[in-house]
Design a binder for these strands. Structure first.
Ligand code: MN
Ligand code: MN
Ligand code: MN
Ligand code: MN
Lengths: 122, 122
DNA sequence: AGCAGATATTAGCCTAGGCTATGTTTTGGA
DNA sequence: TCCAAAACATAGCCTAGGCTAATATCTGCT
């Protein structure tokens, strides 16, 4: 589901940027209540995507890391595509956040082709 | 919500194509149980988007028609954009069905600009 | 006219994703 | 050391969107 991808992607970001991924920070960055994060994290754990060490934050399993990096790659490709299309950064980021969950591999490849063409037109 | 747009868009299509929009047909075309359609239609009615005449199908209110034509326009723009980008029809349609709900006005305008440029490149 | 089959509704259930309010538990600073 | 504040968990509630099974209603055909 879309939400799972966003969570693991954010957990990966927080781990990289902050060294740890705490529930509070996830709640803040996702604009959601802490209780909501708790419930979602429980599901993610059930689905084998994350593990938690209480008061020590959230960590990614192998599966979680795989999902996170795939999500990240997709996210960045969509953003770059939108930027190249002439969107401002804020819009590109905002729309990518939703669009990324609905583009097939074939479409992502088309985006990549477009970027490649643009590049060697410079 | 995304589902409301898809429903009213489909109702509009059915009214145009078939003359009437029946629950059975909506269920079939959306790949959903009839009971699900009933529940959703109840919400759409509550939200002033549709009206029903039992055993005579579903109709759009003014608001519903407005939403339907906006949704249709958006849908078609996204599909045309994807096709121009080189996607096959099936992929373009499938991805558009999800993407259409996550593109801002600014992005749609960028899509339109892209199409315009392509056109006078021919 | 009457009834079988199509169509629609209702009841009862489920999950995801939200919320607030109210505990617990941990931790760092005095 | 110890305790207030921060972090986390739990309980209880809600809506959207799904499902199946059972029931009701309509309609077209004979
Ligand atoms: Mn996202
Ligand atoms: Mn993302
Ligand atoms: Mn759609
Ligand atoms: Mn559509």
């Amino acid at each position: 589901m879309a939400v799972a991808e966003d969570y693991v992607e954010l957990v990966a970001d927080l781990l990289r940027e902050e060294g740890e991924a705490r529930s509070v920070d996830i709640a803040r960055r996702m604009g959601v209540a802490q209780a909501t994060v708790a419930a979602t994290v429980t599901r993610l754990q059930r689905d084998g995507l994350v593990a938690t060490k209480p008061y020590r934050g959230i960590f990614l399993t192998e599966a979680g890391q795989a999902m996170a990096s795939a999500a990240r790659e997709r996210h960045e490709l969509v953003v770059r595509f939108f930027l190249t299309l002439g969107l401002d950064r804020a819009t590109a980021e905002a729309d990518a956040e939703g669009v990324e969950h609905h583009v097939s591999e074939a479409t992502l490849e088309a985006f990549a082709r477009f970027l490649a063409e643009r590049k060697d037109m410079a």
